[in-house]
């Protein structure tokens, strides 16, 4: 569903974290948001999720203002945030169970477990899984909800390079399959360009949009693309902003 961010400002104790931010995100697009630490990326994502309210402005989803969290927008946070008293399978089914469906779609849950490559670990508790496995569970937990919007806040930040790459491929394939709108926050420039179909770069204090460009690389993406002129041009532009050299 299309998301419209209309003049969103967020103030914390008189300090502006977001300043009159406006953005329209098309249905089914993969938007990556890049920005220095503290520029308001998480704040924006939390507002989109309905966990926080904007000081001014509003968010429209399919033309309807967002007033709180809803299972149509699921968030994958930087940390997995799994429930240690639940097994892997029950963690993934948590949202479905809260929705109150009398018969849970266990076949769907098991399919997603297979998709994230954790078949055989269904009964494991989160603390028996590695960090990367936990993060995959967190993603699976979001996916089984069939959200129309997937909000991801540096979900791979804590992973090692190898696992991160696997997860990036996994996410890209998944997005192509489920046709959801993905808003993906990161502070890794390469990751932002490799994943997104559109790149937004935010400047810091107060958070504003400094760059908003389509990513013209074709799909499927490939890490060899990081030497193509398109990639490098976008990277250079993003880097300039992150280094504080807005013209």
């Amino acid at each position: 569903m299309p998301i419209e961010i209309e003049g969103v400002t967020k103030t914390f104790n008189g300090q502006r974290a977001l300043d009159e931010l406006s953005l329209r995100v098309e249905d089914g697009s993969f938007l990556t948001i890049l920005g220095a630490s503290g520029c308001g990326k998480s704040t924006l994502l939390n507002i989109l999720a309905g966990l926080e309210t904007p000081s001014t402005g509003r968010i429209l989803l399919d033309g309807t203002p967002v007033t709180g969290p809803g299972p149509d927008r699921v968030v994958v946070f930087q940390k997995p945030g799994l429930y240690p008293w639940l097994s892997l399978r029950d963690n993934i089914a948590f949202g479905l169970r809260m929705r109150g469906s009398s018969s849970l779609p266990w076949r769907e849950v098991d399919r997603v477990i297979e998709l994230i490559g954790l078949k055989g670990f269904e009964k494991h508790r989160p603390y028996e899984l590695s960090g990367g496995m936990q993060q995959r569970v967190a993603i699976a937990r979001a996916l089984v909800m069939h959200p129309r919007v997937l909000l991801m806040d540096e979900p791979f930040g804590a992973l090692d390079a190898q696992t991160r790459e696997t997860m990036q491929e996994f996410l890209t394939e998944l997005w192509e399959r489920i046709q959801a709108t993905v808003i993906f926050v990161t502070h890794d420039i390469d990751e932002a360009i490799m994943l997104g179909s559109r790149l937004v770069v935010m400047s810091a204090r107060p958070g504003r949009i400094s760059l908003d460009e389509p990513v013209t690389l074709g799909r499927p993406r490939d890490w060899d693309m990081i030497t193509t002129p398109d990639f490098l041009a976008l990277k250079r532009a993003a880097r300039r902003i992150l280094a504080g050299q807005t013209h």
């Binding site: 999720a49 309905g50 966990l51 969290p69 809803g70 299972p71 927008r73 699921v74 968030v75 946070f77 940390k79 945030g81 429930y83 948590f94 949202g95 809260m98 929705r99 937990r141 979001a142 909800m145």
Partner: peptide, 10 residues
């Protein structure tokens, strides 16, 4: 975080 997760899952 546990609370935020539950909230966003409805």
């Amino acid at each position: 975080l546990r609370l935020a997760v539950a909230r966003t899952l409805g």
